[in-house]
Amino acid sequence: MNDDIAGLVARAQREIAKQATGNRFLDLLEAGAVPAERLGWLAGELYRLVGSDQRSQALLASRFPAPPAGELFLALAQGEAEALRLLLDFATAVGMGEAELEAYEPLPLAQAYPAYLTQVAVFGSSSSMALALLANVDESGGTYARVAAALRSRYGLTEEAVGHFLFFAETPPELLDHAAAVAAAGIAGGESPDEAVRTARIVSALETAFWDTLAEGLTSAG
């Protein structure tokens, strides 16, 4: 990662830190205080989110087909497809088959995150999506790792059942290097660094909104 992109990532992370509010759903999950019904909600919301994100990354690949961007966004779309496949194991473990996932009515605010990614895919720059990945990967990956651990320790789920969360817990270093190259190429080509930082900040805020929506109305007693 070159110094300019490293500086943008650091700038975005400072902006993200200013708006950090914690993750109440995760705190409740680690306490075993999320009822079984909400785990079904989690499966249903992720089913919509990941399916949308897969299409958003594919759209970005069609808008920016030249390397390095096209290759990155195709890889991200393929990753979302694999994550969607793994999600079915979690859904089955919490009593949600494919018919139930299709019939599930999503919570509007939980779907603000994928809706914004679609907006970026349609109107945004290649560097914006790349920087959002780089600036948020540690926080997001840590969240998914903790979700997987809590589901296993508190709810007795198998490693296979939490494979979706483990998949997002770690991002291959070569993918991050590729994202840095896309961000650098986009900025060098005239894309706005301010827009890229803004996108990273909003992505983080809407990830928080996703988890907050799932926690709404819950207490420590479940």
Rank of each mutant, 00 (worst) to 15 (best):
S140Y: 14
F123D: 03
A132G: 15
A93M: 05
V94E: 03
E98T: 13
V137W: 08
S126L: 04
Y144F: 15
V137T: 15
A91L: 10
F123R: 15
F90Q: 05
G141P: 01
S126M: 14
G95N: 08
Y116M: 07
A81M: 15
Y113V: 02
L134C: 14
Y144K: 13
Q111D: 03
P108N: 02
M129Y: 00
G124Y: 01
A112G: 03
T92R: 15
V94C: 01
A115C: 08
P106G: 07
Q119T: 08
L101C: 05
A110T: 00
E139T: 11
A121H: 07
A110Y: 01
S140P: 00
L134D: 04
S127F: 05
L84A: 14
G142Y: 02
A103G: 06
E98D: 07
E82P: 04
R85M: 09
A110Q: 00
A135Q: 00
Y113K: 12
V94M: 02
L107F: 11
L117E: 06
P108V: 11
P108W: 09
S127W: 05
R85P: 00
Y144I: 00
A132W: 01
P108C: 09
A112P: 05
S125P: 00
R85Y: 09
F123A: 15
Y113W: 13
A83K: 11
A121Y: 06
Y113C: 08
L131M: 04
L86W: 04
L87H: 02
P106Y: 05
A145P: 02
A99N: 10
L109N: 10
A112F: 12
V122R: 14
V120F: 09
G142M: 12
Q78P: 01
E82M: 12
G141M: 05
L88N: 00
E98N: 10
L109K: 10
V120H: 00
A99Y: 01
G95A: 04
L84Q: 12
L107W: 06
Q119L: 12
A121D: 03
